[in-house]
Amino acid sequence: MTAKPFVKWAGGKRKLLKEISSLFSDNIKTKKVTYIEPFVGGGSVLFWLLSCNQKISKIIINDINSDLMNVYRVIADQPEELISVLEIFQLEYHAFRDNPEGRKNYYYTKRSSFNLRDQQQIIHAAIFVFLNRTCFNGLYRVNKKNEFNVPIGSYKTPLICDKDNIIAVSKLLKNVIILNGDYYETLKYIDQHENCFFYLDPPYKPLSKTANFNKYSNYIFDDSEQQRLKEFCSLLNEKRISWVLSNSDLKNENQENCFFDDLYKDYNINRVNVNRVINNNSKEKNIKELLITNRLDNKKSLILQN
């Protein structure tokens, strides 16, 4: 079985895997590489990479969301224990299929328990997965107090315990270094004696002031953070390390908005088409997103420097 992301994640890269992988897959297949992903999120690119048996000697993933990274660690180290708890949650939740009020009480009790963050790691990870599978549209959003505040969804019998995928993911994560902190911490894992490659998928800059941005943590990723990330990319470039960065294309809303064009004017900016659900309505809209790279060869694949 091919492992896939174990959570739904807004802005996931499943729909852009072809475009993203075309920028670095050939080089990763032919060279020993340390792969580093500082904003792993749901891990679409990570699991594609792991499932392809690419020639990667070391993988480091990181995210500022401690609740999410706890799930990664639990799946890597204690998959069977997590499955046991999720199976119980699934049986209990499905038992309320014809009892909407009982189902709502069950969901909101679990949500309140999650926000206390006083459970054992396995239980907390299980509640995270439960909420992700049963909340509205699989969103992950927190308020300024870092409280998960997404309402219950309308799924009748959601798959809460995907046992086969958890086992598959666990096997792939066994040798992955899992971090939880500021993305600058990943710099210490750069191996000067080996090729390194970074894929960066930060919180996207909202397309407009009224855009409904889904907060993945209580950490605010504003314009100053976008600037700080660009400085991080320039530092990697100085170290002759290849990278790909994804972000929103602000020109979807305003052709005169050159924020990213100006910020990354020294690099290669690619605009790609993708269907996204905008503003939480159920209809997808075809928009453009950015894939920015620091070096390209004639075949449009990244050159990993020695």
Rank of each mutant, 00 (worst) to 15 (best):
C52Y: 12
S44C: 11
L50R: 06
R73Y: 00
E80K: 08
I36E: 12
K29R: 15
V45P: 06
W48M: 14
V40D: 04
L86M: 07
I59W: 12
T30V: 14
L50C: 06
T30Q: 14
Y72H: 03
I61C: 06
L68M: 07
Q54Y: 15
I83P: 06
D63W: 02
N65T: 07
I64F: 08
T34W: 10
I75M: 02
K31V: 02
I75L: 01
I28Y: 04
E37F: 11
Q54W: 15
D77H: 01
E37W: 12
D63G: 08
S84Y: 07
K55D: 11
P79R: 03
C52E: 15
T30C: 11
F39K: 08
I56H: 09
D77F: 00
Y72W: 00
G41V: 07
K58I: 12
I36V: 14
E37S: 09
I83F: 02
V85T: 12
N70F: 01
E80Q: 06
G42L: 09
Y72K: 00
I83G: 03
P79D: 03
I75Q: 04
M69F: 05
K29D: 10
D67T: 03
I28N: 02
S84F: 07
N62I: 10
G41W: 08
N62Q: 11
D77K: 01
Q54E: 15
D67E: 13
S57H: 11
K58N: 15
S84A: 13
N70A: 03
N70Q: 05
S51W: 01
L86R: 02
T34G: 08
L82Y: 12
K29S: 14
G43K: 08
V74F: 04
I64M: 05
E37T: 09
N27T: 14
T34D: 15
V45F: 13
S66G: 04
V85W: 00
Y72L: 02
N70W: 00
I64P: 00
T30A: 15
D67C: 11
I28G: 07
G41T: 08
K32A: 08
I60R: 09
G43H: 04
S57G: 09
P79I: 02
Q54H: 15
A76K: 14
V85Y: 05
V74N: 03
N70L: 10
G41R: 08
D67K: 10
P38L: 13
Q54V: 14
N62R: 09
K58R: 15
V45Q: 06
Y35A: 05
F47L: 10
E81A: 09
F39G: 09
F39A: 09
I36N: 10
L46H: 13
Q54C: 14
W48T: 05
I36G: 08
E80V: 03
L68W: 04
V40C: 07
V74G: 10
L46W: 09
I59D: 09
V40F: 05
I60N: 02
S66R: 03
A76N: 11
P38I: 15
G41D: 12
I28A: 05
C52F: 11
S51N: 15
G43W: 02
P79F: 11
S51H: 01
I64W: 07
V71E: 07
D77E: 01
S57E: 13
F39C: 12
V33F: 06
I83L: 08
R73S: 14
A76W: 00
W48S: 12
K32E: 13
D67M: 03
G41I: 07
E37Q: 09
V71A: 13
K55N: 15
M69Q: 11
W48K: 11
G41A: 10
V45R: 05
K31I: 04
I56K: 10
G42D: 14
